[in-house]
């Protein structure tokens, strides 16, 4: 793991109408790091993730990827919103996996992975097919490459979605509660794929309620509460020595559910 900061957020603010959802988020993700965002529903984790990928536009503060501001450029000391083309180019450097998979239902598993390779990266069909095959093998679905999404289980669909994101060779991979829509027995296969990616040095920003996974895989954990970072630190600091009262309460609910495992 290098020390180079890949993603840097400073004072990120976002409101929906009069409701301020993010009230100044500071966060660093270093290259090769897995950073997890935890917190109660409505604490702003998902909104922050969506701002990083420009699915939402932040109202204030900066999000820098490799030092470049996301979503705008500065000209004559003023912010100018980037063009649609530039925004798309920035998004291509960031992968995202969604809670509800969002596979393209009209394309096979292979077609889902190939679409970005051919239409965004401009690779030829044959090369794209090889890359797609490689990544589908890696998530254990090489034999299902010709299947349509409806023919796959939730866990398999989510693994295809991960392959689709990783195949683009993004600098950063975002995971938005990717196991929340899965039946319990399918969660492990998806977490397994994520753990492998983490071990190979993929830089990941993860929103998750899977505390065992967060504790085991993360380098850095950020607890968010009501639109702010309430406490951040190593997994040991967050889980064993929580200082913030809200974090204690939050973890308490998980301890109650899963015993002292977390």
């Amino acid at each position: 793991m290098s020390d180079q900061v890949l993603l840097q957020a400073r004072g990120v603010r976002k409101s929906f109408g009069t409701v301020e959802v993010l009230k100044g988020i500071d966060l660093d993700v270093r290259q090769g790091q897995v950073v997890s965002l935890i917190g109660a529903s409505g604490s702003g984790k998902t909104t922050f993730l969506r701002c990083v990928n420009l699915l939402e536009e932040h109202d204030g503060g900066d999000i820098l990827l490799d030092g470049d501001p996301i979503g705008y450029r500065v000209a004559d000391g003023r912010r100018k919103r980037l063009s649609e083309t530039k925004v798309s180019a920035q998004r291509a450097r960031i992968g995202m996996v969604f809670q509800s998979f969002n596979l393209f239902p009209h394309l096979t598993a292979e077609g889902n992975v190939m679409l970005g390779l051919t239409k965004v990266l401009g690779k030829g069909k044959a090369e794209a097919r090889d890359i797609a095959g490689h990544w589908l093998d890696r998530v254990g679905l090489g034999a299902r490459r010709g299947h349509y999404p409806y023919q796959l289980s939730g866990g398999q669909q989510q693994r295809v979605a991960i392959a689709r994101a990783v195949a683009m060779q993004p600098r950063l991979l975002l995971f938005d509660e990717v196991t929340s829509a899965l039946d319990p027995e399918l969660v492990a296969e998806v977490l397994g794929v994520m753990q492998k990616l983490a071990e190979e040095g993929m830089t990941m920003l993860v929103v998750s309620h899977e505390m065992l996974f967060v504790r085991e895989v993360s380098h850095h954990v950020v607890f968010m509460d009501q639109g702010r970072v309430a406490q951040a630190g190593s997994p040991a600091e967050i889980f064993d020595r929580p200082e913030n009262e809200r974090l204690k309460g939050f973890l308490g609910r998980f301890h109650a559910m899963f015993g002292q495992a977390v």
């Binding site: 180019a89 998004r91 291509a92 596979l103």
Partner: peptide, 8 residues
């Protein structure tokens, strides 16, 4: 959103 996320 998924289409945006892969950079299309």
């Amino acid at each position: 959103e998924a289409a945006k996320a892969i950079g299309l």
